[in-house]
């Protein structure tokens, strides 16, 4: 059992190191992620955001524009997740009422 766990851990680490050989160098401007056009010919996401954020919303901070304007649905979902987490904490940890036969649950 213990041997299996160690084997799993080591093989997972070796797989990750092997996979990291395919990544581009850190900070490389010509990496696939920072390209101007995607394979289908549409503009690449991050360079499009950098170029048009100030023109669209007159706000210098590009992260704010992406967070609240371009990806507004995404942020609405995240906020709902936070509210749900708070409600679940309350529902799990509230003081339990006693049942009808007087026994505490």
């Amino acid at each position: 059992m213990k041997i299996t766990n160690w084997l799993l851990l080591i093989s997972f680490g070796a797989l990750l190191v092997y996979a990291s050989f395919g990544l581009p160098n850190r900070g490389d401007v010509s990496a696939n992620m920072h390209r101007e056009k995607s394979l289908a010919g549409s503009p690449g996401a991050s360079s499009y955001y950098i170029r048009n954020a100030y023109r669209d919303a007159e706000t210098p901070n590009m992260v704010t524009v992406i967070l609240a304007d371009y990806r507004g649905y995404d942020t609405l979902g995240e906020e709902t997740v936070i509210l749900t987490a708070g409600l679940i904490c309350y529902l799990i940890l509230r003081k339990k009422r006693t049942k009808l036969d007087g026994k505490k649950t």
């Binding site: 992620m33 101007e36 991050s46 955001y49 170029r51 992260v63 992406i66």
Partner: peptide
């Protein structure tokens, strides 16, 4: 904002 190579990518930070 014309040259996209002057700013790091904001998408991952968001």
């Amino acid at each position: 904002a014309a040259d996209a190579a002057k700013y790091i990518s904001p998408l991952q930070h968001c």
